[in-house]
Amino acid sequence: MTEAAQTVRRAGAEEFRAAMARFASGVVVVTTLDSDGEPRGFTASSFCSVSLRPPLILVCLANSADSFAAFSACGPFAVSVLGSEHDALATRFATRGVNKFASGGLSLTPGGLPAVADSLAELDCEVHARHQAGDHMILVGRVCGARIGEDAGAPMVHYERSFRSLA
Rank of each mutant, 00 (worst) to 15 (best):
S119L: 08
F101R: 03
E150N: 12
S67V: 05
L139G: 02
D151I: 15
V28T: 03
C144G: 05
A90T: 15
G111W: 11
L139N: 00
R161M: 14
A19L: 14
V30Q: 05
L33P: 00
T95V: 10
P76W: 07
A4F: 10
F71G: 03
A21I: 05
S107H: 13
L113K: 04
G111C: 14
G41T: 07
R96K: 06
R130T: 02
F16W: 08
V157N: 10
C144V: 09
G153L: 12
S49C: 03
V27D: 13
G97T: 07
K100F: 08
C74R: 04
E150Q: 11
V79N: 06
C125Y: 01
L56W: 03
S35P: 00
G112S: 09
T31E: 03
F16E: 02
H136Q: 01
E126M: 15
S84A: 15
L56P: 01
L33R: 02
M1N: 12
L89N: 07
P54R: 12
V8Q: 15
T32V: 08
R17F: 08
P39F: 02
C48E: 07
H131W: 13
A129G: 03
R147D: 10
A70Q: 03
F71D: 05
F77I: 02
E122Y: 00
R40H: 14
S162I: 11
A69P: 00
A167G: 15
C60E: 09
G97D: 09
D34K: 05
M137H: 08
S45G: 14
G105H: 09
F93H: 11
T32N: 08
F71M: 10
A121E: 08
G75P: 03
P110E: 01
E122C: 01
P55D: 05
M137R: 01
A18L: 11
I57Q: 06
A11S: 07
H86F: 12
P114G: 04
V98Y: 05
T95H: 09
R130E: 01
A44W: 04
S103H: 14
G111I: 13
R53A: 12
S72A: 14
S67I: 07
I57L: 13
S25F: 07
S46H: 07
A146C: 08
Q132G: 09
E160Y: 04
R164F: 06
M156S: 14
R96E: 01
A115P: 01
C144S: 12
T7I: 15
V50W: 03
P54Q: 02
T32W: 11
L108C: 13
S84H: 11
L33N: 02
A78Y: 01
D34T: 04
L166Y: 10
G37L: 02
A62T: 00
E122P: 00
